[in-house]
Design a protein around this nucleic acid. Structure first.
Length: 600
DNA sequence: ATAGGGTTAG
């Protein structure tokens, strides 16, 4: 009878040990089904209060983006320790829930648990973006009060987070960097990275030259600085000088040449680089797509898939955004098909990119079908759909979508209103547009920015309310930019307001003195008013200043190839046949009553 | 600590 007790104990211990062994890497699991299974086992074994098991389970749920489950695990623990709090804070940060991370931090303080060296870096990571600057400052103040600067990891992460808070942040990072008693290579790299993000390469370079020692990251960071500034000559010089070049260095160079539009150079480096990864492929495919080179982009996309590389969300979003920018429906559909092949559901971010791509490419049906099938929409999904409808002339439908959005409980943001005003413009709803413009500040507390004024001025101008449009420009709280004046100029041309146009052009030439589009717009206005004297003066001025207006080109995608053509284009080998066809079409049109508009 | 990433007026 005495033996029965000792026998029971080992069973329990061995079960725990078994579980422990099984759970040693639980915090790295990414398969939700497996995590849920083990969660159930932990419950059965009554181990959910275990301070060894619980943090691992929270981490696993966090990796699977199951924050509700992660929090519920946390709430089971009666007396959480620092480690558990840190784990939950990190989980919130990982799932882009900075406010929850801070809520956990405050709960930790009110529970009387002291933060440690690990708490602050996690917390600091939670504050990124302009609005979080005060939060970084707050964490900074806490750290100074409790003296956690002993661990260099803490000030380093403060520098990194400050750098992500815009211009003010970089100043704060600089200050902190200056007073740091001890700096390691990460402190230097973070500071240089911050300056690069703020766009001050010169200062970054000075610091780079001052560094006591440099590693691959230092070199890549400064290289990225030149690439961001589009100074490819400097970048190339540095690239040649680097002691060692890794994938990141090569990819940064390829990105740089894509940015300045030099696809030959980009491709040469891409072909030459010894190791390529998913990011590299994404960069070059997006580069080709942005330039409208469908054939190359599709070819490389196929090659990438054949090489066995699987796109992640980042790759897909990046390529889809490039397709949206230049209207490559073909490649966009291909990417969509390969997503469907590999995934049952896609994330909100990916779906948004798909909606935007289809909408911008004019495939509104497909945009709708992705939009309607989304499990979780956010404000961006609605904005993309709304903008797509407005852009293609479905003003009424766009405004209906806007009310549906509000019914569904989504709060419109400043981008929503750009879509709404734009939809009003394309549908000619002047009065509705005015109402929305005033409602936006009054009911939604969204202060109109220069973009909103731009929409409004376009709406009024097109509607023939030129005087009102001018009044609005003068009453704007900010300086009107070239787009504002350009919008007004377009309206003047539309309504043959020659005298008003002269005033507009004075402003425009000051802001964009070398933009040929402005001159040709003005020239058209004079021509429409029959003022040929002014037209010839303008032409003379253009010739003197060496401004040449590139002719506007249209493009069409046929068999995955983009064809570009201009007015009076004779470059095609079968030009004769093409013009024969056009003439026949014009003839047919005239027969049904079409009167062509001649500009000359 | 370094490379790609959704919505923004003519």
């Amino acid at each position: 009878m005495l033996i029965s007790a000792p026998i029971r104990a080992p069973t329990w211990i061995s079960r725990r040990r078994l579980l422990e062994e099984k759970l040693s890497d639980l915090h790295k699991w990414t398969n939700l089904k497996h995590v849920k299974q083990v969660h159930a086992q932990i419950y059965k074994a009554n181990l959910f209060q275990d301070l060894y098991v619980a943090p691992k389970l929270i981490s696993a749920f966090s990796l699977c983006h199951q924050m509700v489950l992660a929090v519920s695990v946390f709430n089971q623990i009666q007396e959480p320790n620092v480690h558990l709090y840190n784990t939950l804070i990190r989980a919130h940060v990982h799932n882009s829930q900075p406010s929850q991370a801070f809520a956990t931090f405050f709960q930790m303080l009110s529970d009387g648990v002291s933060p440690d060296n690990f708490t602050y870096p996690f917390l600091v990571k939670a504050c990124s973006g302009e609005s979080w600057f005060p939060m970084v400052q707050m964490v900074h103040a806490h750290v100074e009060k409790f003296g956690f600067f002993s661990d260099i990891f803490v000030p380093n992460s403060l520098i990194d987070s400050y750098s992500k808070c815009g211009f003010v942040g970089v100043n704060a990072a600089r200050k902190l960097f200056m007073v740091m008693g001890e700096r390691d290579i990460v402190s230097w790299n973070s500071m240089i990275g911050g300056l690069v993000k703020a766009g001050v390469v010169g200062e970054a370079r000075k610091l780079f030259d001052e560094m006591p020692e440099r590693d691959a990251v230092s070199w890549n960071t400064i290289l990225d600085g030149y690439v961001k500034a589009e100074e490819m000559k400097m970048a190339f010089e540095l690239f040649e000088k680097m002691p060692e070049r890794n994938v990141v260095s090569w990819s940064t160079m390829v990105l740089g040449y894509c940015k300045v539009g030099d696809m030959d150079m980009a491709r040469m480096l891409f072909d030459k680089m010894p190791v390529k990864n998913l990011v590299t492929w994404t960069i070059i495919i997006s580069g080709y797509a942005k330039k409208g080179l469908t054939k190359e982009a599709i070819g490389l996309y196929d090659r990438m898939e054949k090489a066995g590389l699987k796109s992640d969300d980042g790759a897909v979003i990046s390529i889809l955004a490039a397709c949206a920018e230049s209207g490559l429906l073909g490649l966009g559909e291909k990417v969509h098909a390969s997503i469907n092949r590999t995934k049952f559901k896609c994330s909100t971010l990916v779906s948004n990119a798909l909606v935007d791509m289809y909408a911008k490419c004019g495939s509104l049906d497909k945009a709708y079908s992705v939009f309607n099938g989304m499990a979780r929409r956010d404000v961006v999904s609605w904005n993309a759909m709304l903008q797509g409808l407005g852009m293609h002339g479905h003003g009424e439908e766009a405004l209906q979508l806007f009310s549906r959005m509000k019914q569904d409980g989504f709060v419109p943001d400043k981008v929503t209103f750009i879509g709404v005003l734009c939809a009003c413009t394309h549908a000619g709803f002047v009065e509705e547009g005015r109402q929305y413009f005033y409602a936006m500040e009054r009911d939604y507390r969204i202060v109109p920015e220069v973009e909103h004024y731009g929409c409004m001025i376009d709406l009024l101008g097109r509607g023939g309310h030129l005087k009102e449009a001018f009044r609005l420009v003068r009453s704007m709280p900010m300086e009107p930019n070239a787009i504002i004046w350009g919008t007004l100029l377009g309206a003047c041309r539309m309504h043959n307001a020659v005298d008003l146009a002269g005033e507009v052009v004075d402003h425009l030439v000051k802001l964009e003195p070398s933009d040929p589009g402005n001159f040709s717009l003005l020239s058209n206005i004079y021509a429409a008013a029959g003022d040929w004297d002014s037209v010839s003066k303008l032409r003379l001025q253009m010739r003197r200043t060496g401004i040449q207006k590139p002719s506007g080109a249209s493009s069409i995608e046929v068999n995955d190839e983009v064809h570009e053509f201009t007015v009076l284009d004779k470059s095609h080998p079968r030009s004769d046949k093409i013009y024969q066809m056009i003439n026949r079409l014009v003839q047919d049109l005239k027969e049904v009553g079409y009167v062509p508009k001649a500009y000359q």
